[in-house]
């Protein structure tokens, strides 16, 4: 079986990517809304837009980085185990993985707050991700729920992708020119 046959189609990747976008962009947007009022006090509209373009460009790269290993798992796992239930298991992996990162990030306020034992946290997070991924594929109601949620989230891509590409171009121009 060729690589292209082992990979899920775009129709299946898009919902999983949408879930990732929802979490990655949503997290940044949450903190952005927290910071935005103070920026309004001393940044001009164009400066705020330029800053926002750096944020969106970063989110685009982050979301693709998260998507890549989930897609790559399709190459490694048996087709019926992962590719055929890619949306449910991919979305579950994204939610569990990014959720763990959010919990960890909330503890990382500054250098002195770093959790002492990352070596315990990391295996625990991986274990949770595995369990969630397995369960997501086996329980029909969970599988359908995740698929329905991911499908509905794809509408976000209509906004996030063009905006992010524009932001990436703007950021590149700002950095390289």
């Amino acid at each position: 079986m060729g690589i292209s046959e082992r990979l899920p189609g775009w129709q299946k990747i898009a919902p999983v990517y949408a879930v990732i976008v929802l979490i990655v962009y949503g997290w940044s947007l949450l903190w952005y809304l927290w910071t935005f009022p103070s920026w309004l006090k001393f940044l001009t509209v164009s400066e705020i837009l330029l800053t926002f373009s750096f944020v969106l460009a970063t989110n685009l790269l982050e979301s693709l980085l998260v998507l890549a290993p989930i897609v790559a798992i399709s190459l490694l796992m048996p087709k019926r185990w992962f590719r055929d239930v890619f949306v449910a298991r991919g979305a579950a992996l994204a939610i569990a993985g990014l959720g763990s990162m959010m919990l960890l990030a909330l503890q990382f306020r500054d250098i002195d707050d770093y959790p002492a034992d990352l070596s315990t946290w990391l295996p625990a997070a991986v274990a949770v991700m595995l369990i969630v991924a397995v369960v997501a594929g086996r329980l029909p109601f969970l599988r359908k729920g995740l698929e329905a949620f991911a499908e509905r989230a794809t509408v976000l891509l209509l906004i996030s992708i063009p905006l992010s590409v524009l932001a990436l171009i703007t950021s590149a121009v700002q950095v390289f020119l």
Partner: peptide
């Protein structure tokens, strides 16, 4: 604050 960039 928690990092506004979740991954990086």
């Amino acid at each position: 604050t928690p990092p506004a960039s979740l991954v990086f």
